[in-house]
Design a protein around this nucleic acid. Sequence first.
DNA 1: GGCCTTCCTGACCGTATGGTCAAATTCAGA
DNA 2: TCTGAATTTGACCATACGGTCAGGAAGGCC
Lengths: 215, 215
Amino acid sequence: MAETTAASPKATSKKMRRQEAEALILAAAEKVFAEAGFGGATMQLIADVAGLPKANLHYYFPTKELLYRQVVQRIFQIWLQAADIFDQAEGPEEGIGAYIDAKMEISRRHADGSKVWASEVMHGAPVIQDYLETTLTEWTTGRIEVIERWITEGRMAAIDPRHLLYMLWATTQHYADFGHQIETLNGGAPLDDVQWEDAKFNIKTIILRGIGAIE
Amino acid sequence: MAETTAASPKATSKKMRRQEAEALILAAAEKVFAEAGFGGATMQLIADVAGLPKANLHYYFPTKELLYRQVVQRIFQIWLQAADIFDQAEGPEEGIGAYIDAKMEISRRHADGSKVWASEVMHGAPVIQDYLETTLTEWTTGRIEVIERWITEGRMAAIDPRHLLYMLWATTQHYADFGHQIETLNGGAPLDDVQWEDAKFNIKTIILRGIGAIE
DNA sequence: GGCCTTCCTGACCGTATGGTCAAATTCAGA
DNA sequence: TCTGAATTTGACCATACGGTCAGGAAGGCC
């Protein structure tokens, strides 16, 4: 809810700064878009969650699509940051292991954002197709080169880097996107700290051993 | 001349049998729900895709939600069928390998259905929560027992069966749900036959080696 | 043909949605 | 204190949506 700088958003002053207001609205929008999808989300509901009148939303974000676009771009930035870990590593065990940790942390801390991203891609990426074609494509080719170098250096088995990346994305993202299913199979309760660590450990074990980077 | 079972929807006869009509509508609905989500899909668009007037849809499926429910249940049945392979196997290499093959085939042949399923779960499973709690839960516990037996018999490493199952689901489903992203990273073209075989092989190699079932 | 069930569909309805607007309110700076 | 830009908001609008309905058309069966 509130991670504002000084006070709660609707307590002291009646007027908000652009930054606060936009952050408040973006947070509400992320939640509603994640729960209902773009088509199912309504500006009225987002306004209610944010605790603002609907007209106020349109003051900061002229259209629903523009608001949605910002939500998607925001999670994409977070997504990309986790990628840096890949480069700083000196081998697959450290690099891929840390990447799994980072992406699992995103799935846990930004579950709503992950869902919005997944939904966007699933529906054909209508608003971020250019990102897929530019930024994501470049990032992917770069990482493929790294993996291929590791293979050449004999640090891991000769698997197809693309399918390895897909597996990393799929597995980590699954804990956010299908969190509800996992929760249900967990007796209705969200994974606790131990179970999250357990998940990370199992994923890392299987994948790192699977690509011949450990043991 | 033609009272063909499935193919040409609007050729000879003006009147359709319930079965044909429902199949036609369900196919159109699956496509539209996959592309737009439940909230974004409109009965009008489904009708257009099916080549029928909107009122005709409501004759066979009284409400949008009822239509949606049938689409979801349909893909869940397919999903469950692939599960049988697990039981017939005598070891992890055969069982999990065949399961991956089967689920990858579903991702390829029923991409739309997979997306609808993913979307449903992502949004909190509003219409199939009971399935998750009954059928899916039972299936999962059964499979966990099988995996635990394999572990006890020393046929694979002692990993957590739950997280292994999640990884199987995640990885195979990813090729349907994120098919658009994969396609973009593939230069804009869908995976061809060879690439699909390649995907299966890589996934099986990593996971089976990762759990110590091969090599 | 006559009849009855099933199927088809254009026209219609109440509602909810995204978006607009102009008047009111707030507040920093002169 | 005054002024003007930034912000807030209730009321409003056109449209699109899910769903209804009455009447017509098709076809099986006697």
